[in-house]
Write a protein that binds this DNA or RNA. Structure first.
Lengths: 192, 192
DNA sequence: CTGGGTAAGTCAACAAACCTGTCGTATGCT
DNA sequence: AGCATACGACAGGTTTGTTGACTTACCCAG
C-alpha cells in the first residue's frame, strides 16, 4: 500500500531552450525544501520513537534530554527559550524526568533562585541510546552526501534559523572548529 | 546569564597536531546536526503561524494544504502515507478544510471509491500566503549559503529520509531538473 | 451476480503535549 | 524596604494525535 505517487501535472513545460522560466524553478526549489524539511524531520525524530515508547516517554522528553545533555548546567529559563514552550509544558516533562532519575537539579551558585539542569548517569545513558538511533540515519546521510555537501547542509540550515539559534550553533561549532566562521564574530556572552 | 558553553571536560585535549580525536569530532558533528534540525524546523514551521492563528487553523492544516497543493489529485490514502497519522486525525483536519472551502474532493475516475483531493482557488491563495512567509526564510538561507551549499543541503536532507520519501523527492526534483539524478531511475509517471 | 477485499467516512473514547492565567515562594538587586 | 526575577504549582482549555468498531460504496475475481 501507500505508493506515494506524485501527480505533478501543473503546466509550464520548461522545455524551452534558454528561457526555462527561472522564477518557476526557484519556487519549485523552495517547495522542495519544504518537503524535505518535513520528511527529514519526521524520519529523524521518528528514529528514536521505539525506545521512547518502551519507557513511556515522548518526544518532548527527548528534546529536553538532548538540550540538557548539550549544555549541562543550563537554567530552566534557558531551556524554555530554546524549546519555545511554556513553563507549564516544560514543568510536566521536567518533573517526570527528575522523578525517574534522568535529570538532576542543582541550585545555582551565583544565583540561588536558579535550578541548574544536568543529566544523571542514567540520563546520559538514555540520551546516548536515543542518539545512537538518530546517529545511524545521519551517518548514512553524511556518507552518501560527502564532506562538501555536509558543509553546505550546515550553511543552509544555519540560514533558516533565527538569529538567537544561529548564535547557539556558532558557539557549539566553535568547540569543534575553532577557526573559520561564516557569520560575524560573536561576543563573549549571550542573552537568551 | 546562560553561558551556553559546552563543558567538554572529558579528557583528551584535542590540541595535538595530527591527532585531533576524530571520533569526538564526528560525534559533535552529529549532535550539531540534531540541534540544527530542531532549530531549522522550529523556525521554518513557525514562520507561518501568524497567519494560521488568524484563521484558527493549526500546523496540521498547513501540512495537509501543502501536500495537497504539491500533488493535486492525490488520494486520501496517499496523504495518510505521507503525513503518517491516522485516518481520524486526518479526517478532522480535512473536513475542516473542506467545510471552509479550501479543499475540494472529487470522486476518482478509474476508482470511484477514492476522493481525489485538490485545492480550491481559496485554498491555493491561502497556501500561497503561508508559503510566502516560509519562502522568506528560505530565500535568506539560500542567498547566504550560495548555490553549491544548497546542493549539499539537498543531498544530506535526502539521505536522512526514508526510502519512500526519497522516491517522492526524486520525482518532484525530476520536474525541475530532468537530468542528473543521484538515486536510481524512477518509474514511468502517474496520471493525475 | 455474488462474495471478499479495499477506500473512505464516522462515532466514541482517550492520551499527549501544548496553551492561558493566576498565585506563591525564595531570592536578587537597588 | 520594595520591586523584579526564577521557578513551581493549580485550574481549565485546545490541538493533535491515538485505538477500535462500524458503515457505505466500490472493485474485481470466481
Amino acid at each position: 500500500m501507500s505508493e506515494t505517487r506524485s501527480a505533478v501535472s501543473s503546466g509550464l513545460d520548461p522545455r524551452g531552450p534558454a528561457g526555462t522560466n527561472l522564477l518557476f524553478l526557484r519556487e519549485e526549489q523552495m517547495r522542495l525544501a519544504q518537503d524535505m524539511l518535513f520528511f527529514a524531520y519526521r524520519d529523524f525524530t521518528g528514529a528514536a520513537d521505539v525506545i521512547l515508547d518502551e519507557l513511556g516517554l515522548g518526544r518532548a522528553h527527548h528534546r529536553a534530554l538532548h538540550f540538557i545533555g548539550r549544555t549541562p548546567g543550563m537554567t530552566v529559563g534557558d531551556l524554555l527559550a530554546i524549546l519555545r514552550i511554556t513553563k507549564q509544558s516544560l514543568a510536566r516533562v521536567l518533573t517526570a524526568l527528575v522523578e525517574q532519575g534522568y535529570v538532576a537539579q542543582l541550585p545555582g551558585r551565583s544565583d540561588r533562585r536558579q535550578r541548574l539542569l544536568s543529566l544523571t548517569d542514567a540520563g546520559q545513558a538514555l540520551e546516548r541510546r536515543l542518539f545512537e538511533r538518530q546517529r545511524e540515519r545521519l551517518a548514512i546521510a553524511y556518507r552518501e552526501a560527502g564532506g562538501p555537501a555536509v558543509e553546505g547542509f550546515r550553511r543552509v540550515m544555519r540560514g533558516v534559523m533565527e538569529p538567537a539559534a544561529r548564535t547557539y550553533i556558532d558557539q557549539a561549532e566553535a568547540t569543534i572548529r575553532p577557526g573559520a566562521r561564516i557569520g560575524p564574530r560573536i561576543g563573549p556572552k549571550v542573552g537568551p
